[in-house]
Design a binder for these strands. Structure first.
Lengths: 237, 237
DNA sequence: TAGTGGTCTAGACCACTCT
DNA sequence: GAGTGGTCTAGACCACTAC
């Protein structure tokens, strides 16, 4: 089965991808051009592109084209250092857009925090970019009692955690993280400018203070090949 | 774009999947049958199946068919409790096969452990099952000085970490973990009985003792929808 | 041997982006 | 308006699994 033609195409494309300068603006030729060049149909060519997408080497922007993927971002979700900090530290350019702030009940957040399902929570939805590529769609819910007035004044473009620490004196003492691989749903796909069903990685995080009182909960939807999650642990848990 | 026909198919199939008893042995009807039932072609039907696969609801076994996926396994890679233990604790049935043991140099392992690239290491390759579904293909490299004679006597079907702790008195004090989403390569796909390019999740882990001497390194390739990685942290790192 | 999914052809139309 | 990827048709043959 290793002699499928689309696998030959992935081999040849992989070879070409080793020289990133071969593609202007990191953009691949159109599917029709590639299909003709390799003397095959778009269906087969797309199978090869899908394979390389799964490997994390290329990605697509909805109806715009295929692009060479940059190296994955290293991301340590156990730290509350800001997105801007670690993106910059890796020589990349961060940007954040606030899409929405409101007050809403969100049962999954409430459950993770041990609250009643209909508890109203501050809600902030953001979209984050690395080198002007949208890689992360994030929703954060904060317990209002822990950060009264947060929505009125917060600079959400910067680190929300820094805000919680600095302005409200909160200590993030206890964290429960879950991550899993799941394709992107309609909303996240739209916000990230990719086709629905594109591969994604989800991070959910519940945070508590020293007295184990709930602080907040967030859900992050990443483009699957944009990141590598890194965790370093001393001692046994 | 939300009115694509394959999305209607996913909706209808999702509905049917809510009643698992509707499928004998958790097996879906064949692609040809489903395509006819929904009055479409196999190409479109497969697009719908691929979508549900990405969502983690169904999975395929190479050339055997499509199956309803069981709930994800919760997995905490920061603990060295054995696979058998946490699978059993979740009411599932674990099984392990040893595929290979040998001595080899593996530069990525050596690099992660801070050793010379060509350092010979004990190597153990295993395949692990949950409820008789192969979900994990794993390679482990151990520094020979830390566990002399490991390959001669080890019971690799049980916990390798328990072996290292019990027989060699090793303390796993420091761990460096990396995980990322990446489609399965040829070897892992074959071992897991899925098509090459199927979505996967990779976990890499380097382990050190209290003196920060390297103990071992392992690479795990999971079926992407078989697990949810869970990490709980007290205090700030 | 029958049935399955895996691969592939040669087209077509549509929704969207770019300029 | 030109070009792109997204979706879809109606077939075909092949490699492999299960019996």
């Amino acid at each position: 089965m290793s002699d499928a033609y689309y696998l030959h195409l992935t081999d040849r494309l992989r070879e070409q991808l080793k020289d990133p300068d071969a593609f202007e603006d990191g953009r691949l030729p159109s599917e029709r051009v590639l299909a003709e060049r390799f003397d095959t149909t778009r269906v087969t060519l797309r199978q090869a592109l899908g394979q390389l997408e799964g490997e994390g080497r290329i990605h697509r922007s909805n109806r715009r084209g295929w692009f060479v993927s940059p190296p994955r971002l290293d991301y340590d979700p156990t730290r509350d250092s800001g997105f801007n900090d670690y993106v910059t530290a890796q020589g990349r350019r961060p940007r954040t857009e606030v899409l929405l702030t409101d007050v809403q009940a969100y049962p999954p957040a409430a459950q993770a925090l041990g609250l009643a399902a209909q508890t109203p929570l501050y809600h902030i939805r953001r979209r984050r970019f690395v080198d002007e590529r949208a890689v992360l769609s994030e929703s954060m819910w904060v317990v209002p009692e822990r950060a009264p007035g947060l929505l009125e004044e917060g600079q959400f473009g910067v680190s929300l955690w820094a805000e919680l620490r600095g302005r409200y004196g909160l200590t993030l003492a206890h964290r429960e993280l879950r991550f899993y691989s799941e394709s992107l749903g309609e909303q996240a796909a739209r916000e990230l400018g990719v086709a629905m069903g594109s591969p994604g990685l989800t991070v959910r995080r519940a945070t508590f203070d020293e007295q184990h009182r709930p602080i907040g909960y967030d859900e992050e939807r990443w483009l699957h090949n944009a990141l590598c999650i890194t965790v370093t642990l001393k001692n046994k848990p």
